Simulated scan of single mutants.
Amino acid sequence: MTLTHPAYGQLRQVTPTAAVLLADNPGQMTLDGTNTWILRGAGSSDFVVVDPGPEDHAHSEDIARVTGGNVALTLITHRHHDHTGGIDRLVELTGSPVRATDPAFLRGSSEPLADGEVIEAAGLSIDVLATPGHTGDSVSFVLEDAVLTGDTILGSGTTVLDSTDGTLADYLASLDRLVATGAGRALLPAHGPDHPDLEPITRYYIGHRHERLEQVRAALRELGPDADTMEVVRKVYADVDERLWLAASSSVRAQLEYLRTNG
């Protein structure tokens, strides 16, 4: 039987080189849970793990089980705990080195990920693409036939911008980079289902962001230019479940900053 998303605790092959193991941590911000991607090139006995997921020993042990402990490298798309919480347990189980943009998550390595770097591991060439916006440290990983986008592009819904260091200007630039790089390649997100072509999803994201910007502009025309974040949220997200307003406020804060800087 062919597995479909979501398939908790079961390794689901998506492309010839990429399989996914879904963590059992569903929620408003994580959708069905965190997708841990398990990568391996043809003929390789080693694996690359992307995003070991939350601090969940069962999930870490599942990663070790499906890889036989042969993890040549673990890569991190960004700092959020639902992606990084499982780092240390996975290192205990497999001895894998860990690389990330943020030095706080390096294990067995002193080199943060760099934009444009090409990583050779587990029979694969993996291009590192800086895609800040969701967070300042967000990166995507480009394979020959797929792009792993972390939380920059999700498999369903849209992405919240972390207002502590995510900016809308960065995010829009990152979406443009992904269209240019990923057209024709599969979309392998950190949450939600995968898609056979990254380009239409990314173009939808770009259109959605510009639509939201226009809605915020309209709200400011009505509420006044000094309206605060939650006033704008209540206006723009009036038809959205109020339980999501706190998350929406982070993106609105980034949109207000963008408009007040760029007009």
Rank of each mutant, 00 (worst) to 15 (best):
H5D: 15
P6L: 08
P6I: 11
Y8C: 08
Q10I: 00
T15E: 02
T15V: 09
P16C: 13
P16F: 14
M29L: 13
L31Y: 10
G43M: 04
S45M: 01
D46N: 08
D51W: 00
H59L: 00
H59E: 12
N70L: 12
V71Y: 09
T77G: 05
R79K: 11
G86Y: 01
G86S: 12
I87H: 10
I87T: 08
E92R: 13
P97F: 07
V98S: 00
T101N: 06
R107D: 12
P112C: 06
L113Q: 06
L113F: 05
S125V: 00
D127V: 06
D127F: 04
D127Y: 01
T135F: 03
G136R: 06
V142N: 09
V147A: 06
D151A: 00
S156D: 14
S163L: 03
S163N: 13
D170R: 07
D176P: 04
T181G: 03
G182P: 05
G182D: 03
L187K: 03
H195R: 15
H195Q: 13
P196C: 02
D197M: 02
I201S: 10
Y205G: 02
Y205R: 12
G207H: 10
H208E: 10
A218Y: 00
P225E: 14
A227N: 05
V236D: 02
V240S: 10
V240N: 07
V240Y: 14
R243I: 02
L244W: 12
L246I: 10
S251A: 08
V252H: 04
V252E: 09
T261H: 09
G263T: 08
